[in-house]
Amino acid sequence: MSSPAATPRRLPRPRFPESARARARLRAVPVSVSTIPRAGFVVLISILLMAGVVGLLAFNTSMQQASFEATKLDRQATVLAARQQALELQVAALRDPQHVALAARHLGMVPPPAPAFIDLRTGDLLGVALPALPGDAMRVTPLPAARPKSLTPREKIVKVTLTKAQLRRLERDKRRAAQDQAAQTTKQGSGG
């Protein structure tokens, strides 16, 4: 193989006509860009944005509304629960044996003096049937509180000596009282 220097320097240039060369020159390929109208795009984006904002707002508002509703229902539940409890307390108070016993006593009821049963299948009496009497009643209320001694003043006896005039007056008053009483009794007697 010969060295490159040995190769002939000038290659034979192909001969093309100028016109062909001109045709063959590289050119930008025309790009067929589908042109979207700019205004339409902006409108679309705006609508999307607006819808998003409005949607978010609506969502937030509805959440807030739900929160109000929840608070309201919560309060209502509390009130109703309180009422239920109040009613339960009332039932408990009415079921209290003390209350029932007082009501029963008010109706004139007393505990039975002896337990007795009737066998409903045979009609037999089990046990001794005794009539309940007022004496079978028992006290269900506490004893009335004792009156404190300090409320009952001690009797104080004061001895006085009377003058003769006073004694006479006393005699006279006594006599008059006796007469009045006698008159009263006769009146009553005649009236009856």
Partner: peptide, 16 residues
């Protein structure tokens, strides 16, 4: 008194 109440409350019949 308590026994009477018990026997009638729990329906314990006499054994006879």
């Amino acid at each position: 008194k308590i026994m009477r109440y018990l026997l009638s409350r729990y329906a314990v019949a006499p054994t006879n």
